[in-house]
Design a protein around this nucleic acid. Structure first.
Lengths: 194, 194
DNA sequence: GTCTATAAAATGATAGAC
DNA sequence: GTCTATCATTTTATAGAC
């Protein structure tokens, strides 16, 4: 915590906070490598030098924004997979969660970003996100009655289907591709066809 | 065909050909957006101005290299999925084909590349590749006895699993993730566990 | 803490010799 | 067709006023 001034008013975000949120948006749209400091400044409405007052370099901003994005994404997954209710209900909720297929996954796309993959401190949040998500899906599948090994393997297939569904939707320009791919994932989870 | 000179000797490639191959390699490693003309020149061993003699712009080189990569990739898929033999044997061959999981898919990664996705002429090869691949998998699944609808949906899941398996392997830094994800795909194809 | 102005380096592309 | 030299622009980052 370097922010020692008074807390920001409900509506007015600090320059630092606006920078992080603008970076999160831009990274989700076009990745870290393709996002320039200038774009972050323009979208955040913050002046030139302020970025380098709050962050030593472009990489430090990226790290802050990526950690934020992966934490937010994992929290959302917990909302569907870790809540109460039956394992089948939780798996259904996860697979049926609303997704912008043509936008792609803000976390998954980072595996194609050379800046992220070349820096272990930028790749670490990705690994934590997917490890956490796979644990949640694995537990639900184990509760479904699958063996531990079987639950682990199928969780990998289910999460891969979500990620690959985004890839197919974007490549085909067809937002129904993800949804169709997920039907097979439901079958693998032991959920009846609706 | 603008190349009107004598065909290159078996071992000596033209500058144009060396440029395309170097671009293919670099795009596979780091994407189009992150690859600079300078990097292509260095890897190909070709001099500065020669790139712009053969290609009007960076985008034109990218288009040529991407078409080449997607055609080569689809040809490889045909080698496993369109050959003779039983549908189960062909599906097994496709799912068991050697893949460098940590390198990622040279075609799939392009769906995260802002330069590719922003230009319809660069995105088109991706769409053709995945359409062709899905057709091959769908046909094999139909031969397995699945209904047309069921074969279409499961083909989407199978190809998504391959693509997502690459994403997971890279995010986790674990090349076995793809292989484990593919076990679920085999189950969905009606192939017994080995 | 925030801003404007600016500098060093890299990028995309061109000119012109050979 | 291929090369070296060069240029305009953008990118990353810093200086210093307020």
């Amino acid at each position: 915590m370097t922010t020692t001034t008074t807390a920001p008013a409900a509506d007015v975000l600090t320059a630092r906070e606006r920078l992080v949120r603008a970076a999160q948006e831009l990274y989700g749209e076009q990745g870290v490598d393709a996002t320039t400091p200038r774009q972050v400044l323009e979208r955040s409405g913050v002046g030139q030098g302020s970025l380098y007052h709050h962050f030593p370099s472009k990489t430090d901003l990226a790290r802050t924004a990526l950690v934020r994005t992966t934490e937010e994404s994992l929290d959302r997954a917990r909302g569907t997979l870790a809540g109460g209710g039956s394992s089948s209900g939780r798996l259904r909720a996860y697979l049926g969660a609303p997704r912008d297929a043509l936008a792609g996954c803000a976390v998954g796309r980072m595996t194609s970003d050379p800046v992220v993959m070349a820096d272990p401190t930028l790749r670490a949040p990705l690994e934590e996100y997917f490890t956490g998500l796979l644990d949640l899906v694995t537990l639900a599948l184990w509760e479904q009655g699958f063996s531990e090994t079987e639950a682990h393997d199928r969780a990998m297939t289910v999460v891969a289907t979500v990620q690959g569904g985004y890839v197919l939707a974007r490549a085909l320009g067809d937002d129904t591709a993800l949804e169709r791919a997920l039907r097979g994932a439901r079958t693998l989870c032991g959920l009846e066809e609706s």
